[in-house]
Write a protein that binds this DNA or RNA. Sequence first.
RNA 1: GGACAGGUGGCCGAGCGGUUGAAGGCGCACGCCUGGAAAGUGUGUAUAGGGGUGACUCUAUCGUGAGUUCGAAUCUCAUCCUGUCCGCCA
Length: 422
Amino acid sequence: MHDIKQIRQQPDAFDVGLARRGLPAESATILALDSAWRQSVQQAEVLQAERNAKSAEVGKIKREGGNADALMNEVTAMKDRLAALEAEAKTHEEALNAALATIPNLPADVVPNGKDENDNFEVRAWGARKDIKNAKDHSDLGPALGQMDFETAAKLSGSRFVVLKGQLARLERAIAQFMLDTHTEQFGYTECSVPVLVNDTALYGTGNLPKFKDDLFAANTGHFLIPTAEVSLTNFVNDTIVPEEQLPMRLTAFTPCFRSEAGAAGRDTKGMLRQHQFYKVELVSITAPESSDAEHERMTNAAETILQKLEIPYRTMLLCTGDMGFASRKTYDIEAWLPGQQKYREISSCSNCGDFQARRMNARLRRMNAKGTEFVHTLNGSGLAVGRTLIAIMENYQNPDGSITVPAVLQPYMGGIVKISA
RNA sequence: GGACAGGUGGCCGAGCGGUUGAAGGCGCACGCCUGGAAAGUGUGUAUAGGGGUGACUCUAUCGUGAGUUCGAAUCUCAUCCUGUCCGCCA
């Protein structure tokens, strides 16, 4: 949610920011709604003040035993006009909020302009890509091992689901444990177990609603399945005033994520790269405004550390304006090298949302010895996508015979198993 | 799912339908007191929006939404949440 005062003061800067995202100017529309709202509010308030004064006068007269019938009739007479003005103000306010609710966050200054993922900027690359001859795709390796079964999953649920079995299923669990342990022990995140069914308020707070309802699975109770634990974790501070000394809050959770991705049909249909359901270890930080940039680097480093420990080559991309998510003002994507595809593929996305989500959630902080409150900043990042990490391990650690070597750091989580084979 | 009880400021907790934006306490801030501290003591301390350069002022907010009334934290209805007991259940 944008600060309407900011738009009033610098409408041009607002439109420039939208233009950088490839979106049309909105400030004129917004400001028209805003002034219509303010006008009707002011008129209503004048009338309310008059009513309040007269009613107080009635009270005074009655206490003194007088007759206030005339005054009471006066207030009755203004009721219709007052109700109409209040309704008008409410209509305008709702229209303004509806318009603001679907406008994405503005990009930070350092974000490069661009149209799509081709315009993203490579910040750094890590690790030597091994030369694997005739590298196979995970969707060939897995079924050949008899431990990755798309047919059975299709029987249960349809396309874009998978069943893992045996050591591959265990590997998925091992990856999650390793990630959680690293983030809690090395980076100070607090492990959380959270609801994966959430209400519409929570989804509005993170920016998933109202605009992206079609990407979500809805339950018949009014709940939605989370598309990411970012929703659950970030909303910890929904409608909350956090004392400054409790910041930064660093939270992590391992959850399934559910995405209907109606618009993405046809992309990455093979294998388990793009599924309706997948596991992810999520990182969320709540910070004071001045700390969010540094926290963003710290969080990205935490995510990269996982790949370094797993010894999987990756590159870190600063997303261009055209490729950033709705709520973000600056995003790093971490892309792992997949030998089977001979491509880098996204395995994590770390975003600084500034105060955008905080405004939607009404999440604030109170400074020591200071009056008033400020909006917190929120950040979220994958630390990492577990399914895609499984893919990256399979493809980078594959052996000519189709077996998979277990990365050294995961062996303790696999009961000492060194190799996965059929 | 059934029966009760309850949701008030940063926190706790009062609140006959009429100076109650809201007593009191805690916490916090600034004074006084003290050699210094504690204790004691005085004053001040909600959020958001509108208007004004400013002192200031108007409006809204007592879970949420409707309603009754000249006037609602207070009365009515609906709804959500919390607690206790019962039932069911991993």
